[in-house]
Write a protein that binds this DNA or RNA. Structure first.
Length: 407
DNA sequence: TCTGGGGTCCTAGGACCC
DNA sequence: TCTGGGGTCCTAGGACCC
């Protein structure tokens, strides 16, 4: 911390993370599962059944067969070593008796709106980071004498406690909050006392509380970068901070190397962005079994058309038209290929998406069996800002378009 | 029996225009 | 005739995040 800090006004930024969000929402519905290992994931088939006596029967992890992954696990389930992203089949070997619930995104969106509204009523400067996380700029709410490194930040602690209590009152759910001068540090420290935690740090705490953490905890240092860092003898954020900036740039490129050096010292000037427009909207599906473009042509054709219809409905519901349509394929060996095409009109309807996605698909190699098919709309614009005649509404003949014909 | 679905951002090469 | 920038758009892939 010998280098001069950038001359920016000091800020108080909070990162709020709902505790085991999806699983916790499910426990509100099924309180009898409280205290037990529960995982959320997979598809519809395993919804709980209500018995004649009113009690409920839950699917267990060891009964699962398929390609699903864990979306969230309760802390009781995590104790068995399962975690989000893990395949359900693998998780079943670790925690066979854990209850398995299907994800119910409508319900999670409802609780997401509730907790965000509760926070907004106290602190309106909110940046969405997905369904269960937000950044909050508390700078304007902080007492003037609470800025800087002076302890104990009682004013900012009061505000954070009020937010936590308001979220709990609105949803019955707990969250963890980290507060610091920037988004990077707040994200790191919101995790330090999970669940139901509150952690406040300043730049002076970086060596003591941040440097001992693994470098992979930093948002933006994923599996690849972590592995490369480890191969260079760097495991912790402190070791990264001790690395020479020129050396980091040589190993990771000018941009990423400079960024690594900055974040290791806890520096981050990114603002809290309270509004943004989507850049792309997509739909994709992993098949129950791998499919071949030729042998399973009929089945693929139906799936392909359905994805296009779902995407069109998403676009229209959200009020966007797209100029670029793409497809995504995942082969049986997990290799991913994408192909996109930019149209000469704005596209919003299923037939238009099907037409351009079909043309994009023709550019892709299709010898290998497929595991996943996806359709994506990019280059979006707000549809009602467009002259009506610029939106392509003509009905394309689905029988003659695309590779996967529909019977 | 490995490994979902929805996103963002960055890089890099080629086309094309001035 | 040859050499050469810069800028923008399009495309493909990949890392990363929730």
């Amino acid at each position: 911390m010998n280098e001069a800090e950038p001359k920016v006004p000091s800020r108080w930024i909070a990162h709020l993370d709902m505790d085991a969000f999806y699983a916790s929402v499910e426990l509100l519905r099924y309180p009898e599962l409280r205290g037990k290992p529960v995982v959320v994931g997979g598809r519809r088939a395993h919804a709980p059944k209500t018995l004649p006596d009113g009690s409920r029967r839950f699917a267990l992890l060891h009964d699962y067969a398929g390609r699903g992954v864990i979306t969230t696990a309760t802390y009781e389930a995590r104790a068995f070593g399962v975690h989000s992203g893990m395949g359900l089949m693998k998780a079943a070997a670790l925690a066979p008796d854990a209850a398995l619930l299907p994800a119910d995104f409508d319900q999670y969106r409802k609780y997401s709106k509730l907790f965000k509204a509760a926070v907004r009523a106290i602190a309106p400067q909110i940046e969405n980071r997905g369904i269960d996380e937000i950044y909050i700029d508390l700078t304007d709410l902080a007492p003037a004498d609470d800025m800087g490194d002076a302890e104990p930040h009682s004013g900012i602690r009061d505000i954070a406690m009020r937010i936590k209590s308001s979220v709990h009152k609105a949803t019955g759910l707990t969250c963890s909050i980290g507060v610091s001068p920037n988004k990077l540090l707040s994200k790191l420290c919101s995790e330090l006392e999970k669940p139901n935690g509150l952690t406040i740090i300043t730049m002076a705490d970086v060596p003591g509380r941040i440097w001992p953490l693994p470098a992979s905890k930093i948002n933006g240092i994923g599996p690849k970068a972590s592995e490369k860092l480890a191969s260079l003898g760097i495991k912790t954020i402190g070791e990264l901070a001790a690395g020479d900036e020129v050396w980091l740039k040589q190993n990771f490129g000018a941009n990423y190397g400079a960024w690594l050096h900055r974040v290791a010292h806890g520096r981050d000037e990114r603002p809290v962005v309270t509004h943004s427009e989507p850049k792309s909207i997509s739909r994709e599906t992993t098949f129950e079994r791998d499919l071949h473009a030729r042998h399973d042509r009929e089945e693929l054709g139906k799936l392909f058309t359905r994805l296009c219809e779902q995407l069109a409905s998403d676009l229209q519901r959200k009020g966007y038209a797209a100029k670029t349509i793409g497809v995504k394929l995942r082969f049986d060996d997990f290799r991913i290929v994408t192909r996109v095409l930019t149209a000469d009109t704005w596209i919003q309807d299923a037939a238009g998406i099907r037409h351009w996605a079909g043309r994009a698909l023709k550019k892709a190699p299709l010898e290998q069996k497929l595991r996943l098919l996806g359709v994506r709309a990019e280059n979006l614009c707000v549809a009602d800002a467009l002259p009506r005649e610029d939106v392509d509404q003509e009905q394309h003949d689905q029988l003659t378009l695309g590779l996967f014909k529909v019977p």
